[in-house]
Amino acid sequence: MAYTKCITLSILLLFTLLGAANAEKLPATDVKRCAGNKPFPLEVRVAGCIKPPCIIYKGTVQVFEIDFVSHKFVTNVTALVKATTLGVITVPYELPDEVAAVCPNLMYGAYCPLYPTEDVTYYFEFPIGEYPEIGVKIEIYLVDQDHDIVTCFTCDIKVKKGVSGNKVAELN
């Protein structure tokens, strides 16, 4: 009888802890699909932003967490960004190599290679340069070693004047 009570208590404790962990998780940011039939992430969290346009400050680093699924065997993944302003001007947004390299920035002990149906989280520190204070649509896509798109999404941002000194906007 004591054994049954112990198991019941353990199960209740587990559900309580799981509920508390889920309560801590920030809600997903409302990002959009890329044009075409590109794979969409499971979830994207942008620090400090649930409903775009996300306010992003010049001279800071904006943190994204991107949950995605690998649909094939992947040995390498690279992050690429395009920025569109005024609805017509699209340019590549160069990322530092250490940021663009997805595999070393996977969270929760994940690492490459990735196997089909494996889901992982990429910790993406997006450096915000000294750009005009305008609205921008960013397209973030992750490509594998064969240049196939692993996942892709767009997010509207609004660049604003930052505070002095570099700051990292992080998720809790």
Rank of each mutant, 00 (worst) to 15 (best):
Y3G: 00
T4A: 12
C6Q: 14
L12N: 07
L13P: 00
L13S: 09
T16C: 14
T16H: 08
L17R: 01
L17D: 01
L18M: 12
L18N: 13
L18G: 12
G19I: 02
N22D: 04
E24M: 08
K25F: 03
L26I: 00
A28C: 10
T29P: 10
D30I: 01
D30S: 13
V31D: 05
A35Y: 05
N37C: 01
V46F: 10
V46I: 14
C49T: 08
I50L: 14
I50C: 07
C54S: 08
G59M: 03
G59K: 05
T60I: 00
T60M: 03
F64N: 02
I66M: 02
I66V: 15
F68I: 05
V69N: 08
V69H: 01
S70Q: 00
S70M: 02
V74L: 12
V74K: 07
N76W: 13
A79T: 04
L80Y: 15
L80S: 05
K82V: 01
A83N: 04
T85H: 12
G87M: 03
G87R: 14
V88F: 15
I89E: 02
I89R: 11
T90C: 00
V91Q: 13
P92Y: 06
P92E: 05
Y93N: 11
E94G: 02
D97H: 12
V99C: 09
A100E: 05
A100V: 05
A101M: 00
C103P: 07
P104M: 02
N105G: 01
Y108Q: 10
G109M: 06
G109Y: 07
Y111F: 07
Y111S: 14
Y115T: 13
Y115M: 06
P116E: 06
T117G: 01
T121K: 09
I128C: 04
I128L: 07
Y131F: 09
P132A: 07
E133D: 01
G135L: 01
K137N: 11
I140D: 07
Q145E: 15
H147C: 01
H147S: 13
D148F: 03
I149E: 01
I149S: 03
V150G: 05
T151N: 04
F153E: 03
T154Q: 12
I157F: 04
V159T: 08
V163P: 01
S164W: 09
V168F: 09
V168C: 04
E170A: 12
L171I: 15
N172F: 00
